[in-house]
């Protein structure tokens, strides 16, 4: 597959991939009070891998992901549920926000967002990879 894609696409993808990944994480981190968040960040990261898949083929994209997308969904769900259960352990209602450092937005909502982030990456990539195989 690598031979069929253009040199421009491959070079562009190589440069853009790290930028997109960084941008995805940036969106995730600023998302609590500003536009962004786990969902948007997850989509950007998934887009980075899709670009990689267009440029270098399915196997390369799977290798670059380092894990199976199902794993990402599973761990994302666990994180999200965990962020809800954590306050319950302190006797507060499920999903109550607990803040470690509210000024920087570090607390259970961030954990929840991280869970969403992972689930979105996993879901989008599982769909893309499955479609690519057929």
């Amino acid at each position: 597959m690598t031979t069929t894609t253009s040199l421009i696409l491959r070079t562009g993808a190589r440069v853009l991939m790290p930028l997109l990944l960084l941008f995805g994480v940036f969106l995730l981190l600023r998302g609590h009070n500003a536009p962004g968040g786990g969902f948007a960040g997850g989509l950007v990261v998934a887009a980075a891998y899709i670009l990689h898949f267009f440029a270098f083929g399915l196997d390369a994209a799977r290798r670059a992901l380092l894990t199976r997308p199902e794993r990402l969904i599973g761990s994302g769900l666990l994180l999200a549920v965990g962020s809800g259960i954590l306050p319950a352990l302190f006797g507060r209602p499920f999903l109550t926000s607990l803040w470690f450092d509210p000024a920087r937005g570090i607390g259970t909502p961030m954990l929840f967002d991280l869970g969403v982030f992972l689930v979105v990456i996993g879901v989008v990539l599982i769909m893309t990879f499955t479609l690519a195989e057929e």
């Binding site: 199902e70 794993r71 969904i73 599973g74 761990s75 769900l77 666990l78 549920v81």
Partner: peptide
């Protein structure tokens, strides 16, 4: 059930 589903995925 959500927790179980997540564990089943992992």
């Amino acid at each position: 059930p959500l927790f179980t589903a997540a564990v089943l995925l992992l």
